[in-house]
């Protein structure tokens, strides 16, 4: 029997009820925001899946559900064959070590009142890693120096506010390594960093995957970054996956109009030409309140036709490994 996949997300849904927001104010009733609506996918060990899409499309919410920082409104999540929804007690604590999250804003990751050394030691202690204080310190120093944070002692006595963005993000990655998780969600971990630091962090994550067989869900709005790090890409729009498949396949031949818009609007980073003329799509991601049937991209899609406003397209394969949710493909 083959090993269970690392992650199985089965129709995950996350609705937020807006109590006193502007929407309720206008409509005079409570509204529901469909932050994530029936997202399903499988992630194997040592696999990296990139979630891409505009801000507000639900990427972070998916990420938070995967590490149980947010409870799904509906749907099931399985981690290494075990149902996550009902975990509690020791099993939950074990899950909290095995599944980690790296944040966009590295400053959020550490308690501002503790030195970096204390924070890292505490994290290890909570999960019973290392024999004693001395052993833990030893491991911290080794991992930090391997990550280019030298001399490590220099950083251990610092407080989070005494670090640059790049240094904090490197240390957040160090913490992940110390806990040796099997699964990591990295939520835009490099979008605020310099290109040089960004390259280092991406390489660090790739090395972790190779050394620990770690599975990673990597959230980004940069398709070139997604291509560099991921095996597969899932393009999200308004809470749904609209296209999922091997990274190279999606970049070479994006089939969903929204994927096409994203790719054609990505600026070339060198002397190469643009892939195609940027596809103009108007407006911004609307807030997914009180969703009606039909394609959620229809009001911005240049190819929308009658059916798109009536019937919600379902994610399906049309030959090849990529799945697309669009009526244009039949």
């Amino acid at each position: 029997m083959s090993e269970a996949p690392l992650i199985v997300a089965d129709e995950l849904q996350c609705l937020f009820t807006v109590r006193r927001g502007p929407v309720e104010f206008i409509r005079g009733k409570a509204s529901r925001i469909h932050a994530v609506d029936t997202v399903s996918f499988t992630l194997e060990r040592a696999e990296i899946l990139a979630l891409v899409g505009e801000s507000g499309c639900g990427k972070s919410t998916v990420g938070r559900m995967l590490v149980k920082m947010e409870e799904p409104t509906a749907g099931a999540l399985t981690f290494a064959g075990e149902t996550v929804n009902a975990l509690s007690g020791a099993r939950l604590k074990e899950f909290r070590r095995r599944a980690q999250m790296i944040f966009q804003n590295p400053f959020e990751a550490f308690d501002p009142r503790l030195t970096i050394g204390t924070s890292l030691q505490q994290a290890m202690q909570i999960h019973n890693i290392g024999k004693d204080q001395h052993d833990r310190l030893q491991r911290i120093v080794t991992v930090m120096e391997r990550s280019g944070l030298t001399p490590a002692e220099d950083f251990l006595s610092r407080y989070p506010h005494e670090l640059s963005g790049g240094q904090s993000q490197r240390i957040a990655t160090v913490r992940v390594m110390l806990l040796s998780p099997e699964f990591v969600v990295a939520d835009e971990p490099v979008s605020m960093l310099d290109v040089s630091v960004r390259a280092d962090i991406l390489n660090q994550l790739l090395d972790l995957r190779d050394e620990l067989d770690m599975g990673i869900v990597f959230i980004t709005h940069d398709l070139a970054v997604a291509r560099y790090i991921a095996d597969r890409i899932a393009v999200m729009y308004l809470g749904m996956f609209v296209e999922v498949g091997p990274a190279e396949e999606i970049l070479a031949n994006p089939r969903h109009p929204y994927s096409q818009a994203l790719l054609s609007n990505t600026l070339p980073a060198g002397d190469e030409d643009r892939i195609t003329e940027p596809m103009p799509i108007g407006g911004e991601v609307p807030t997914p309140v009180d969703i009606q049937p039909g394609c959620r991209f229809a009001n911005r899609c240049p190819f929308a036709f009658d059916r798109c406003f009536k019937e919600t397209p379902i994610l399906q394969a049309h030959g090849g490994k990529t799945e697309v949710a669009c009526h244009l493909l039949g």
């Binding site: 290109v195 940069d222 398709l223 291509r227 980073a269 060198g270």
Partner: peptide, 11 residues
């Protein structure tokens, strides 16, 4: 070094 630190869409 700056230019070669940037991931590319193609190639």
């Amino acid at each position: 070094a700056l230019i070669s630190s940037v991931p590319r869409l193609r190639g």
